[in-house]
Computed example of a mutant assay.
Amino acid sequence: MNFDELKKQWDNQSSEEVQINPDIEIKKEANTTIDKVRKVMKKDFFFQLTSFPLLLLYPFYFEIHSTIIWWMIACIFAIMTVPLYYLIKFYKSSYRLEYNSLRNINWFYYNFKSSVNIFTLYTYTVCILCILFMGSIFIEREMFLNVEDPIVLFTIIIISLILYIIFCIWVMKWWIKKLYKKPLEDLKEILNQLEE
């Protein structure tokens, strides 16, 4: 068979017989979304690392060098390190897979979703520890103790803590929504398309 015969057969072939798999475009879109997620995670990881040195500055700022404060900082570091370890592990293992199958995209989606949940719990834990830390600083520095009425002192502390908790929860929810909500929804939509 020569080249001219092949060319004739090619021209005579119906274009309706050639079908391109529609999943290829969807999987390409999933790869793009996964790449965006990785970029966001990398930026967020480096942002989170800035909180470690800032935590070390508090005792110097408030001029408190008691062993209790340094012990609490060590505990906060330990609590901050464990979730970051799992997030880094997920980030690194996400590069080992090729996202050309439903199974791998599914794996990424559910691990990414659990990573967002870990990040949320991690933030709540750090907020509670910061409340403990700031309370210790106030006790060590004997702040608010010049208030004569204990009811007023108690009210000021409770209102301050409630406002701090509300602020932390609002910032955390805003942060997660801004960085992670859209890619999570995009991946869910891609999975729904692939499963149809």
Rank of each mutant, 00 (worst) to 15 (best):
L132P: 00
L87P: 01
K39R: 11
F90N: 14
Y99Q: 14
M134T: 04
Y180Q: 04
I128G: 05
V40F: 09
Q48M: 10
T81Q: 07
I26K: 01
E16D: 10
S160V: 06
E17N: 11
I158G: 03
Y122A: 14
D149K: 07
I69E: 05
Y124I: 04
P22N: 10
I137F: 00
F47T: 10
T50R: 09
S66T: 08
A78Y: 08
N106C: 05
Y58S: 11
N117A: 05
F154T: 13
S94G: 02
F46A: 10
I156H: 09
Y86A: 11
I105R: 06
V116I: 13
F108D: 10
L132H: 00
F3L: 15
R96V: 01
Q48N: 13
I34R: 12
K42A: 06
R38G: 02
Y95H: 13
L57C: 12
L55M: 11
V171F: 14
N12R: 15
R103V: 03
F46D: 09
A30K: 12
E185L: 12
M1C: 05
I26F: 00
I73Y: 04
Q13N: 10
Y164G: 13
E25M: 09
Q193A: 09
V171A: 08
E142C: 11
W71L: 13
I73A: 03
F90G: 13
K173V: 04
T123D: 08
F144V: 08
T81H: 08
K182Y: 01
E195R: 14
F52C: 02
L97W: 10
T123F: 04
H65S: 03
K89A: 06
C127I: 09
P59G: 01
C168S: 14
V152A: 12
E148V: 03
I157C: 12
T123K: 14
I158Q: 09
E142D: 12
F46T: 09
D44E: 03
I157D: 09
A74C: 08
S115Q: 09
I162C: 08
F112A: 02
S94Y: 02
F62T: 08
S14N: 12
R103W: 02
Y109H: 14
S114W: 13
I158P: 01
Y110I: 07
F108P: 06
T125L: 07
I157H: 11
Y99D: 08
V18W: 07
D23A: 03
P53A: 00
F167A: 08
E142A: 14
K182A: 02
E140Q: 15
I169K: 15
G135E: 05
D186M: 00
Y58Q: 08
Q48C: 10
I20Y: 05
C168K: 15
I24K: 15
I69P: 03
I76T: 06
K7A: 00
L132I: 04
S160I: 06
N111L: 05
V116G: 06
L6R: 01
I190M: 00
L187R: 12
Y109S: 11
I76S: 07
K92Y: 07
Y99T: 10
L184T: 06
L49F: 01
K36V: 00
K28S: 06
S94I: 02
K89Y: 02
I64M: 07
K36C: 01
I69C: 07
I20H: 11
W107E: 13
F138V: 09
M134P: 01
